[in-house]
Simulated assay, not measured.
Amino acid sequence: MITSSLVYIYSLAFLAAFFNLLEKKTSLKIFKFIPVVVFIYAFSMLFASIGVFDKNEEIDSIYKLAKINLLPAMLFLMLLQVDFTHFFKLGKSLLISYVLAVLSIAFGFVFVAFVFNFDTQSSAAFGALAGSWMGGTANMIAIGSALGVGEEAFGYALVVDSVNYTLWVMLLLFLVPFASYFNKFTKSDEVMDKFSGVACACDMGAKKYWLLILLALGASAFSQIIAHNIELLNQTTTIVLVASILGILGSFTKLKTVNGSSEIANSMLYLLIALIGSKAVFDSFSDVSFYVLAGFIILVIHATIMVIGAKIFKLDLFSIAVASLANIGGVAAAPILAATYNKSLVSVGVLMAIMGYLIGTFGGLAVGNILIFMAK
């Protein structure tokens, strides 16, 4: 049993690094279907369940300290990559598709919460999931922390995210050969050739890790100071909002072009996932099927609205599919789908997915608070 806080945090860091390296250095196909964050969470939870981590004050203290400092730092770095200039150059079809995707996902969550009559904890968990499906796992953690989602409920949301996301990616890839038929149905023009010049500058130049770490920790400290003195909703929500605003402001400066923010942010994300998993001990998995079913219905609603919107606005399959996966799949999946249409369009998927870092936090908080209000 691990009783030392130093060994505890080192063990979690080792676990996160192990699965990250396993994904990058091997060609295991399982990582194409199950994201690495799920393995990190699952094994961290497994170790906690079998009693590897002692439940003492020292470990509880380092858990809270690491989580509250890493969360705003990660958000700040994620949002530095947002590129508003290039995003708004995507054109009417892609922008309409993106807005339609965000709104249809939000509506799907509200509708399902109403039908299933969620309690407060389920509402908070699905609010966190909404953040993931509008942005990414980083947004899920931020919103889950802000809304006070318990470790077990967060685990269920992560399972839904993984299962439904995998099925959604497979469906969208399956539909690629049928794009011409869909475009005839919507009477749309193919817009793919217009965007070969669109690019993201966030991965160019030398990697300046130390500068970015210093800035991220500074943003974290500043966010906590502001939250301690000016509480908007609750302290964690205030920290999330302030860190997000700092990241957005930084994206308008030369910091946007400093390479390395993505790697550091992902490292923080993996450690946060391991931390949360280390406090999750499931009594049973009986509620997982309920969560997965609710997630599946949300996707059906989202897909229906996207097809109707494509017919009304004459949108092509590429536009609505990439916009959808940029939200639900994020940076890991949207570029892959874009490349299946045309390899020169990878950057379009990247840009739309990166915008989700911004939309996911604010949109997820909005949806989460609506769901919680409905549950009361």
Rank of each mutant, 00 (worst) to 15 (best):
residue 285 F to L: 14
residue 192 M to K: 13
residue 148 G to F: 11
residue 353 A to E: 06
residue 138 A to R: 04
residue 61 S to A: 14
residue 190 E to W: 02
residue 200 C to G: 13
residue 330 G to R: 02
residue 303 A to R: 07
residue 112 V to R: 04
residue 87 F to E: 11
residue 310 A to I: 06
residue 38 V to F: 15
residue 206 A to G: 10
residue 14 F to P: 00
residue 126 F to N: 11
residue 244 S to Y: 00
residue 85 T to F: 11
residue 309 G to S: 05
residue 271 L to R: 03
residue 95 L to T: 08
residue 246 L to R: 01
residue 126 F to A: 13
residue 373 F to L: 14
residue 74 M to F: 05
residue 161 D to Y: 10
residue 263 E to M: 03
residue 194 K to M: 12
residue 194 K to N: 14
residue 297 I to N: 02
residue 248 I to L: 08
residue 116 F to P: 00
residue 4 S to W: 02
residue 82 V to C: 09
residue 176 V to N: 05
residue 139 N to L: 04
residue 20 N to R: 10
residue 12 L to N: 06
residue 333 A to W: 07
residue 40 I to N: 09
residue 155 G to R: 05
residue 349 G to V: 04
residue 289 S to P: 00
residue 339 A to Q: 15
residue 151 E to Y: 06
residue 175 L to G: 04
residue 163 V to G: 00
residue 198 V to F: 05
residue 262 S to Y: 14
residue 176 V to Y: 07
residue 371 L to G: 08
residue 274 A to F: 03
residue 77 L to N: 05
residue 337 L to I: 09
residue 107 F to P: 03
residue 254 K to T: 13
residue 235 Q to K: 14
residue 324 S to N: 11
residue 66 A to S: 14
residue 8 Y to P: 08
residue 281 V to D: 10
residue 145 S to T: 13
residue 260 G to A: 01
residue 244 S to N: 08
residue 184 K to R: 15
residue 257 T to M: 08
residue 31 F to H: 04
residue 15 L to F: 03
residue 18 F to L: 13
residue 92 K to T: 12
residue 119 D to T: 05
residue 361 T to P: 04
residue 187 K to W: 01
residue 90 L to S: 05
residue 27 S to F: 07
residue 305 I to V: 14
residue 29 K to E: 10
residue 257 T to G: 09
residue 208 K to A: 07
residue 251 S to H: 07
residue 303 A to V: 05
residue 82 V to R: 08
residue 140 M to D: 10
residue 87 F to S: 11
residue 52 V to W: 11
residue 266 N to M: 15
residue 67 K to C: 02
residue 339 A to Y: 02
residue 17 A to T: 07
residue 150 G to T: 13
residue 165 Y to E: 06
residue 247 G to V: 01
residue 99 V to D: 00
residue 253 T to I: 04
residue 181 Y to N: 12
residue 369 N to A: 03
residue 231 E to C: 09
residue 348 V to R: 07
residue 266 N to G: 15
residue 10 Y to F: 15
residue 368 G to W: 06
residue 105 I to V: 14
residue 214 L to Q: 11
residue 146 A to C: 11
residue 296 F to E: 02
residue 304 T to N: 06
residue 314 K to W: 01
residue 27 S to K: 15
residue 280 A to E: 07
residue 152 E to S: 12
residue 238 T to N: 04
residue 353 A to W: 05
residue 173 L to S: 10
residue 266 N to D: 11
residue 270 Y to S: 14
residue 294 A to Q: 10
residue 250 G to F: 00
residue 360 G to H: 09
residue 137 T to P: 07
